[in-house]
């Protein structure tokens, strides 16, 4: 199982970059999340990022 990103609800708080810097970055223009390597794997860091995300932008993939 991996995770998906919903940029429509992202508010650019940057919490995911703090929790999983190897996986998430922020677009320098609007601050919204961009996955560093394309996909978002399941890992303890990513799960922490999903928990810390204020806007529900990191969701388990169906």
């Amino acid at each position: 199982m991996g995770f998906e990103i919903d940029r429509t609800v992202c508010i650019g708080a940057g919490t995911c970059v703090i929790k999983a810097p190897a996986v998430f970055a922020q677009d320098p223009d609007d601050g919204l999340v961009v996955p560093v390597g394309g996909g978002v794997p399941d890992s303890p860091e990513v799960r922490r990022a999903a928990e810390a995300c204020p806007s529900g932008a990191i969701v388990p993939a169906p």
């Binding site: 508010i11 650019g12 708080a13 703090i18 922020q26 320098p28 223009d29 601050g31």
Partner: peptide
């Protein structure tokens, strides 16, 4: 407003 500002308060910046 938030979209206008978020890019200026990123982790990197």
């Amino acid at each position: 407003y938030r979209r206008l500002l978020a890019g200026r308060f990123t982790v990197r910046r």
